[in-house]
């Protein structure tokens, strides 16, 4: 479904990803963890074609896309949604218009139908009736949720989340985690979730991949990762768990 084969990427001669290979199958939720600056966002940006890899192959729905032109990529992007690390809401538009954006651009729905979809998606993320608000009137967590509603407005088959719970209070991150899980269940989406939040990672993941210094150092199911004897992995998940008690309890 989604596959990276020996992908390398660098900026201005500085290597960021080194021979990264990763495979996510249809309907699976893959969580990518790793320290700040290790290249997690870069992987997502490669997958949606915002960046081109300097080497390697990227497969999406059985197509090798690393050399696709913008126009060809757009055909695939209609089936993809992305929640940006800093939400990236269109700040000149209302919340409702943000969520409706893809519907207006890519469907022939009437305004009534669009309004209905927008209402339903906002209800899903717990923001009923906030259509008329402007993004600068929202808290960071609310923006994240609008961004999520916008990403799933067209019922995409693939959703990419860049730190969906960062900067949210524990209750809200639990809500978002549940949302990711239910989105996957209801819409049968293939998801990739980049996160620092181990509690959320263990909750939503089918498999977890850990990236360190631009390389995948571990990849496996939740229990495999928890029992991994890789010291990097242990340090990362325990360092995080010591901050959140319930995660340690579950572990």
């Amino acid at each position: 479904m989604i596959k990276l084969v020996n992908v390398s990427m660098g900026f201005n001669g500085k290597s960021v990803l080194n021979n990264v290979s990763l495979e996510v199958s249809q309907g699976e939720t893959m969580v990518i963890i790793g320290p700040s600056g290790s290249g997690k966002s870069t992987i997502l940006r490669l997958l949606v074609g915002l960046l081109k890899p300097s080497a390697g192959e990227i497969w999406i729905s059985d197509q090798e896309v690393s050399h696709y032109s913008e126009d060809r990529f757009n055909n695939l992007r209609r089936n993809m949604g992305m929640v940006f690390q800093y939400s990236a809401l269109f700040d000149s538009m209302t919340v409702g218009e943000n969520v409706a954006f893809g519907l207006r651009q890519h469907t022939n729905m009437t305004e009534e139908e669009i309004a209905r979809v927008v209402r339903r998606k906002l209800r899903m993320v717990g923001l009923s009736g906030q259509e008329e608000k402007m993004p600068n009137q929202l808290s960071g967590g609310m923006k994240k949720r609008v961004s999520l509603a916008r990403a799933i407005a067209l019922n995409p088959g693939i959703v990419l989340y860049d730190e969906p719970t960062a900067g949210l209070d524990p209750m809200m991150s639990a809500t978002i985690s549940r949302l990711i899980a239910s989105t996957r269940r209801i819409l049968k989406v293939t998801s990739i979730v980049v996160t620092h939040d181990m509690e959320s990672a263990f909750w939503v993941a089918d498999r977890i991949a850990m990236i360190y210094n631009g390389e995948i150092v571990a990849c496996g199911t939740v229990s495999q990762i928890k029992e991994s004897d890789n010291p990097l992995v242990q340090r990362f998940i325990n360092g995080m768990a010591s901050l959140g008690n319930s995660a340690r309890r579950r572990a």
Partner: peptide, 18 residues
Amino acid sequence: GSMKVTEQIDALRVMATN
């Protein structure tokens, strides 16, 4: 420019809008 630095241009592209 402010759309660019707040990733709104990227969001446009991801939403298949040139």
